[in-house]
Design a protein around this nucleic acid. Structure first.
Lengths: 283, 283
DNA sequence: AGAAAAATGTAATTTTTTGACATTTTTTAT
DNA sequence: ATAAAAAATGTCAAAAAATTACATTTTTCT
């Protein structure tokens, strides 16, 4: 496992001094791999053997071995880690941290996706009479994005931001209709109600939400994404990105299922936009 | 560059003893990174300083530094790459490919972001009288998302999907207003026009778009993202995700600039939502 | 062949890491 | 609240590792 993640995870189990070391390393891992144990000890305001003990606690043979592991974690291609933004971060720091955390979350999300369910949902979508995408707050823009994607497929697709419109739309559902509900927490009351209404009217309800949430219990199929959210920011960030990527997956599955002639159709849709754009000079 | 490749490439220019070292390392790099210079010298049947000189010839600071580079080369398990979806891909294949491509694109985007500009734009946003986010098509949902984020900051923020509303809104701009325009290609005519209108009315225009596009030339600041888009799908996918992440970066920069009391405010906004949600049992 | 240059090795030096043990801090039980 | 035990941390010395300076060997070129 990635040693940076391991440090973050085990941070709680560290002693006070070890945590000082952990903080210094996490704050600037690049510097850490190029420092000697003495330098790192001084930076952490800790004695050298403490740094050594810290390394051993992470199941490495010693400091040099630890640096090797750290270097591997930092090498590109290795999964990214959720590093939290710090008050004193400059633009470079927080930019990189946000990008890296997003990538790390996507990796976690990827591993938590149940491809069986993806497959069944794609099946469902390709056979749907009508597809609705609903979300509220931060998930509204995800639903909005799904509309944009599925609209190109020439399928009857519906999206509303307004709760009442969402409810009315679900009241008019019937067999063969698919309602996709998007919510990170799965605890938004009105969305849970909408799930109930849709099911009462024989629609199939797909939830893109967290497992074992009130919303998930009302859904026919649940596509759950276990994405760690940085709660310090009080804003949903990574969860939306994961949801969007899942929408991309569904859209891709949809086009694959429909086959080649359908791809042609997509190309035509795209070409239609040409009139609204400035031509690219050399293509 | 990958140091293993470098060894292979420069092998010709090595001396006899250095080549012995190279061979031993190439034959078993995993062993090499866990050996001391003495062990490696013995394995190569060469003296210790020779190994050291070998390391320096590869532009490393010395043996330990060389091991670090080697470790990084070896870490490259599977760098995320943009693997294109194939007609015969099953659900597991395309799910993984989409997630991986998205991560790969984010990495590319991260490297292409100009943090200087990020910093200036954050400055601008924190001082803005009014912030507008406009995008069309796939980028509309990105603007939508930006609205959701910045709305929490208690800043006057505007978002319209309708071109005419966007134009009217820009007509009413004045000094101190910031208009953020989002477009992957930067070739959408009406967005370019909106940029012109906004600037004529003394607003500062920030473009989240590709460098050197018609739109970028009309912007005061350009946050360019070089994201490779899988054109086979005829749908924007990775570009949106990169744009969203950039919005996250801006939002994060914004909150950091505003300081701690402001974070408290965000928490209050979030807490307000509580009434609309089912409580979590154990927290 | 023989001088000059390059390569390599030897041995000492320096740097770095680790281990043993003392001291301090924290926890636990009374 | 206090003493004993346990855990954590630091000091200092020993060991290991890496590097330097310099001697020796090998190669190259005239």
């Amino acid at each position: 496992m990635n040693i940076l993640e391991k440090i973050t995870q085990n941070k709680a189990s560290f002693s006070k001094s070890e945590r000082k070391v952990a903080d210094v390393i996490l704050a600037n891992p690049q510097t850490a791999i190029h420092s000697s144990i003495a330098t790192l000890a001084k930076m952490s305001d800790v004695s050298e053997p403490t740094v050594n003990r810290f390394c051993r606690r992470l199941d490495t043979k010693g400091f040099p071995d630890f640096k090797l592991h750290l270097a591997q974690s930092l090498a590109n291609g290795t999964p990214y880690v959720n590093r939290h933004v710090d008050e004193n971060d400059g633009p470079e720091d927080y930019t990189n941290k946000i990008f890296e955390s997003t990538m790390a979350s996507l990796e976690v999300a990827r591993q938590s996706v149940d491809v069986q369910v993806v497959n069944r949902v794609v099946d469902l979508l390709t056979q749907a009479q009508k597809i609705s995408f609903f979300g509220l707050g931060a998930s509204a823009s995800v639903a909005h994005d799904a509309l944009n994607k599925f609209f190109r497929f020439n399928v009857p697709v519906v999206y509303f931001e307004d709760i009442l419109m969402q409810r009315m739309s679900c009241m008019n559902c019937s067999t063969g209709d698919v309602v996709v509900l998007i919510s990170h927490t799965g605890r938004t009351k009105s969305l849970v109600e909408i799930a109930q209404i849709a099911r009462m009217n024989d629609a199939t309800v797909v939830g893109i939400t967290s497992a074992d949430s009130p919303l998930s219990h009302e859904c026919t199929y649940v596509l759950s994404l276990e994405v760690p959210e940085d709660t310090d920011m009080y804003m949903p960030m990574a969860s939306r990105i994961a949801q969007l990527t899942l929408i991309d997956v569904l859209a891709t599955g949809f086009t694959l299922r429909r086959g080649n002639k359908f791809r042609e159709n997509l190309k035509r849709v795209k070409d239609t936009l040409r009139g609204s754009r400035y031509e690219k000079r050399n293509e």
